[in-house]
Amino acid sequence: MDSKVLPIIEVKDLDIGYNNIPVMRNLNFSVNKGDIFIFMGVSGCGKSTLLKSLIGLKQPDKGKVLYSGKSFWDEDEPGQKNIMRRFGVLYQSGALWSSLTVGENVALPLQLYTKLSVQQIQEIVSLKLSLVGMEEYADSLPSGISGGMRKRAALARAIALDPDIIFFDEPSAGLDPINARKLDDLILDLRDSLGATIVIVTHELASIFAIGNNSVFLDAETKTMIATGSPKDLLANSQDEKVIQFLTRAKKQELKQ
């Protein structure tokens, strides 16, 4: 790790679980500014639960999540809200508010946290929707557009306040390869243009290798992280059977040969 780069997110000795049943234990990693950081692992290993602990939806059992040095779960409510304003989240299903139009969805964060006039908000909404190629659909309801469009509209909402960090929960899930690729390109463009740090929960190998420059591998069996580093480096150098099996889609028997 480059020592000059200050970690934007630091996870220290984190334990997470549900109803006293541990999901992940002893997680330690940091995300640097400008990283596209991937949480990877098999389905059900706890990637999305970890994401919830990072975005303020699930209090960890133990440990700390630091945003630029500030411990999120030790802050009071206004402090937590201040930190939360720094990030945008793209949920797996898009999670657009179904009673609002696409444009109103993107406008809501701006109405809540800026003092812009209605006209100015409209201009920013148009810009954000254009960035994801959805300007024409500003007046559509979420129920009237396709799954891929819903994800792009949700991305426009996630970047409405120009966040420092954007979290993606399985962005390619349910998308065809062409739309998945477009979304990957969009993520790269957003990182480069907004200077945002990107954290992605995924198990899509194509996306992991195309855009990820740092990652952590979560193992369901040992309930902890078993590897960290660039996905390409892990593929080239990791000695761990589970990591190689995941990154190459190889069967156990094939690895032994």
Binding site: L57, M84, Y91, S93, A95, W97, S98
Partner: peptide, 17 residues
């Protein structure tokens, strides 16, 4: 309930609402 299932309520929480 549908909003909870489709993560719309989570989206409100992470927006600080």
């Amino acid at each position: 309930g549908m909003m909870e299932s489709s993560e719309e309520i989570d989206a409100l929480k992470t927006l600080g609402v």
